[in-house]
Design a protein around this nucleic acid. Structure first.
Lengths: 350, 350
DNA sequence: AGGCGTTGCTAACTCGGTTTAGCTCGACGG
DNA sequence: CCGTCGAGCTAAACCGAGTTAGCAACGCCT
């Protein structure tokens, strides 16, 4: 099956030159080392005719550079979000003419260590350690290659690792601002809040989104009208919290969900209670899950820039160490769809 | 940054033996080539103390085996389905102690050729060519490595490529059977049908699912009560088709959607028209998108076994060529949730 | 004529493993 | 006392590139 590959020696022989000459020409150092133009042309032509391709293993062995990156995430399958992050990383790798190894640690430090080891054995030029939701992780030691944390914050405060994370505080502000701009003053939080103490544990996104929200509301002299913390942010949690909110007598206003899955639950509860989005309730949330575009009406949401995150993480691997160390916050853009209306829209319509 | 790695020569010197001996011991050929037990122990201990790791590039160069597979899909990000497939492939690779390169061709044959080239340059031991929805693709030539088509059918009928695809016909039967078993006789198709001519172009899944449905209905002496072909299978298409169905006067029965996104649209149309799932309409579909578990009621759907597909594709890469050539159909299991009830359930409830 | 610089190319070493062929030493048989 | 055999190990070749040091031929200058 493995047919014989054409080697540099084959090209050299066919072109009637030494391996050295062939190597120099094909790595574009021919001019630098004064190989005559006719010889260069001949070598190039022969190489093309024989469809010569250098053996990467050999280049790696000699140069120590593999044109390869590693990408380790704690879980790949959670959603298309992970896919987008990988997609961004792939594009980043492509731009630098690298290939990408991927691995999944399932959250296990042992498995992660195994993957790092396997990648380092293969001489990767750098490794991205990614999480699917923003959280703290210890920095693996003794890797000996450039390392970047993606959507992940080093557990050690003074760690010298470049970090790429979404700007969740800005996102919180943007979500709140969208509702304020529409004229809303009664804003109910689903997922966390109303105060900074009411945040699910371990989630950095939750805390920072809430910070941003409170900042922006505070700037307008407001506080959340209510807030309900959910331990996990699944649709059913959003449904439950929203149903409780409606049962408490709230009949209109704005609902700010901490992610799109919660918002799906909110939609369901609102519809089941006979209210409508956006006439009775404006809804806004975070993530820009694929789902957001599928709901009726489309869900306005602050997008997690997964693609950008992936791409920038790869770029950070190649940045000079001095420039790279530090936290890069990638902006989260608002995706306006149809779930926000001015308050009182339902009354106006009558 | 790249600290000096410990090499085999270092281990050999520290253990006071030759590189040959160290190599033999560490590749477990020590007994075979009669290296004495004390020497073996010393070599192993020194290797462990120095944290010796063989340089994969060098092994690849010598042996031609890289312990690496390639996985090329046409698109990664479409949904978590792709993620599951990759996850399965990762698990498959892990079991064989391989790493996984991934690449995305975006549907371009040129880009795919580039990726194959880059992977072959890196001496991968095999390549999986995957599609995110089942379709025909030409078989790349001259790869010189084992190749497996995943969720992809060779355009050339006589191509010698192992193929791993989901059993869509069985899935069609299972979906229809689930409705028949609940007592339904009036089954409306959303996405394709009512006859085999009414299938969106290029989608093998559509044709085969329909075949299975028609087979199973035919076995019960039935035909679809109606069928609506949709060019694309997005929620909005499902919403439009279902809304049209309801406007035509249909007020109860069973709706069989060709995928979960269409089913989401169907849910929306049903709810907006004031009907309920499953009391007025039973709904069943295909894919087991994450969404299916989030809907209220949960959507009963025939799952695409993406994880299994990915895993088996990797296994097929390592199967002996004779055994591997041919089509492997992976079963699609029914995920029963709450969207199917007996017909007339709404009337009974009154 | 001899020395010097330039042009154009190559021999030989290197990376870090695997593998083949063979060497050395002691025991044993005849 | 010599030859043979097996145990236990190693020298050296090899995989396919990149890289360093330097050689041969030629022209030019003095």
């Amino acid at each position: 099956m493995h047919q014989k590959r054409v080697t540099l020696a084959d090209v050299a022989k066919a072109a009637g030159v030494s391996r050295t000459t062939a190597s120099l020409v094909l790595s574009d150092r021919g001019d630098e080392l004064r190989i005559s133009e006719p010889v260069q042309q001949r070598v190039r032509q022969v190489a093309a005719e024989l469809a010569y391709r250098p053996n990467a293993a050999s280049q790696v062995l000699r140069t120590g550079l593999s044109r390869t990156f590693g990408f380790i995430s704690d879980t790949v399958a959670t959603s298309q979000l992970a896919g987008d992050m990988i997609k961004g990383a792939l594009e980043g790798a492509r731009r630098h003419d690298h290939m990408l190894f991927i691995g999944e640690s399932e959250g296990s430090e042992d498995e992660q260590a195994r993957l790092i080891q396997a990648m380092v054995d293969r001489q990767v030029d750098g490794i991205v350690i990614a999480s699917m939701f923003t959280r703290e992780r210890p920095v693996p030691s003794g890797v000996g290659r450039p390392l970047v944390f993606l959507n992940t914050v080093p557990a050690e405060p003074r760690a010298q690792v470049p970090v790429v994370i979404p700007d969740e505080i800005g996102a919180g502000r943007a979500a709140a601002r969208a509702l304020l701009d529409a004229g809303h003053r009664k804003i109910h939080l689903i997922g966390a809040g109303p105060t900074l103490d009411d945040v699910p544990p371990l989630t950095i996104a939750g805390r920072e989104r809430l910070e941003g929200i409170l900042q922006e509301l505070g700037g307008a002299g407001l506080e959340p009208a209510s807030g309900r913390r959910c331990g996990i942010w699944l649709p059913e949690d959003g449904w439950r919290a929203t149903a409780a909110l409606l049962r408490s007598g709230v009949a209109d206003g704005a609902i700010l969900c901490f992610n799109d899955r919660l918002a799906l639950g909110a939609y369901q509860a609102i519809q089941e209670a006979g209210f409508r989005v956006p006439q009775d309730f404006s809804v806004v949330s975070f993530d820009d899950h694929q789902l957001a575009g599928w709901l009726r009406p489309g869900l306005t949401t602050v997008a997690l820039p997964h693609y950008e995150l992936g791409r920038r993480a790869i770029d950070a691997l190649l940045a000079p160490a001095a420039a790279a160390a530090g936290v890069e916050r990638v902006p989260m853009p608002l995706r306006a769809r149809g779930s926000i209306a001015a308050p009182g829209a339902a009354a106006d319509a009558h």
